[in-house]
Design a protein around this nucleic acid. Sequence first.
DNA 1: ATACAAACTGAAAACGTTTTTTGCAAGTGG
DNA 2: CCACTTGCAAAAAACGTTTTCAGTTTGTAT
Lengths: 338, 338
Amino acid sequence: MTSVGSERNLTIRDVAQRAGVSISTVSRVINGKKVRDELQVNVQRVLDEMNFRPSAVARSMVRGRTQTVGVLVEDISSSYYAEMIKGIERILERTGHHPLFKSSHWNLQLEEEALQVFLDHNVDAIVVVGGLISESRLQDLAARMPLVLVGRGGVSVNAPTINLDQRGGAYGATRHLIELGHRQIVHISGPLTQEDAVARRVGYQDAMHDHGLEVRPDWLCEGDFLETSAFRATMHLIENGTPFTAIFAGNDQMALGANLALHRKGLRVPDDVSVVGFDDLPVSAYVVPPLTTIRQPAQQVGELAAHAAVALMSGEPAQLAPLELKLIVRESTRAVRR
Amino acid sequence: MTSVGSERNLTIRDVAQRAGVSISTVSRVINGKKVRDELQVNVQRVLDEMNFRPSAVARSMVRGRTQTVGVLVEDISSSYYAEMIKGIERILERTGHHPLFKSSHWNLQLEEEALQVFLDHNVDAIVVVGGLISESRLQDLAARMPLVLVGRGGVSVNAPTINLDQRGGAYGATRHLIELGHRQIVHISGPLTQEDAVARRVGYQDAMHDHGLEVRPDWLCEGDFLETSAFRATMHLIENGTPFTAIFAGNDQMALGANLALHRKGLRVPDDVSVVGFDDLPVSAYVVPPLTTIRQPAQQVGELAAHAAVALMSGEPAQLAPLELKLIVRESTRAVRR
DNA sequence: ATACAAACTGAAAACGTTTTTTGCAAGTGG
DNA sequence: CCACTTGCAAAAAACGTTTTCAGTTTGTAT
């Protein structure tokens, strides 16, 4: 066999000529349509010999489908999205579709542009993860093509939506701390411009309230989901003498930032202060101390989204199994010292 | 203005009809070619009114270029590759190219398939990061289209190659430990099937040798670049009573695994054992204690690779600035106790 | 005024496939 | 033995653009 794909500019025409048949026949052989046995084997042999591969572009042109799926996330390289992408990749690989990833970096304009690129390239479906795009725009989109939403309110949009109960997860995290006897619990939230950040904050507030605990205003800090913001917030908290025995961070990255600040200030985790995160990043099980957190099954979310997209593309309704957030108790939390 | 892109199946023909001109003229207006002023504004108005966007597929068909770049990495969701991808995204975004990412998961067959997909889709350039593909195959590829290699020997391949001095970095990491007075230094390597893993191991060995230090066979452990493998290796080391005062891990993830094992066994970092990693993942600055490591400028590598690809596509030679690995001293290393 | 160049525009070809239509040969029933 | 169906391959149309080529108008110089 000649080296794989060692030529290009090979067209179905060349194959037809060499096999002494028409291009239609070659096309039929390629696509497994009915052809006289004798011709079939002959053409197939030539196909193999020439190592011919049909142009995906030309196919897309005539078929009107591209076998690609646009996937829009905030940031490909952020751990959480990366995990989700892995799940999407895994499923689409099996169905012969190709994901086309774009990052929007929490920027509405970039988001709109990415969507436009998807449209221009005639993707067969779009998966939108989070984002700032308006619901009406999404509704437009959903009306024109298969669309799957992940981690968005999207109640008004007529498209399958995968949502994890962020509020509930945060509630559980907070309750865990309360059950360990903590009363003075700080929450460092993500940027309140993001749905998830506020949902988690609400979960914290609800849990506190339901257990009859007052929330001091200075226990509510706003970060940006990155380590540094939580590091700073925690340093300030300590320097201001704000009393607290536990921190519930809006995500694991911020939990790590808080963790480091505590370390800097000579406070031990979990002996002096308990810390809970959110996400369960792959790394969270290996930091010292291993982080108690709320597991978001990011890969499963990705898989589910991909499945939904595939279903939609073949005209079937999407099946959405509800996914659960789970408290993973590790070693960054313990009963409050008395 | 009507809602963005609210129709499809719109073709240049519809625009031509509505504007009362030929499709050639519409095409010319779209592409900024010379057209009588009066027509130009008229057609442009219709274009805007109809919110027309030309089909990228049809364009690719006739132009023979797709404005896409295939990027093959081992695992999109692994932190290191994710960073690199971010760099690639950033550069290509500016030039109007669209990256098409594929993961090969250290699997030769998947790698070959991904390459085939790139070829089928007629990408304008390919970036191969690491991987198991043979050099001769790469040579074939390089002869046919713009190809950029990252983190591969690739000496025999006629394509721009971006390589970081893995051996040198490892040498520096080891020397750092030696200079701190460590004599009994363990190295946990990545899988020795990977070039980078062996290069780093060689760097370790060379540094030890150059400083007149014998390497005990049981100081050489082989992991798989994931946390767990290093965790286990370190546990065994301690349980077997192997003497050591420092660990140089083949990457940060394994450093974290080792770190946790030490913690489990009641050994303090850096007081009892010093730990050095490799990569400088975003998280490494925030773990406790912050990790001393070798910084690989992953994003810059990605940017450089993207620049090279862009240059190649426009027929220019690629400019390759050499990138440096840098020792980042944080708090996981200190002078050996005597 | 006429010839010729310049400037544009429209018609048509091309890109590489798939799919529809046409055409031909063989088979079948009366 | 003829009319009619069947089966299968070749020819042609189609997908939505860009680009080439030819044709038309306008302008200019003689």
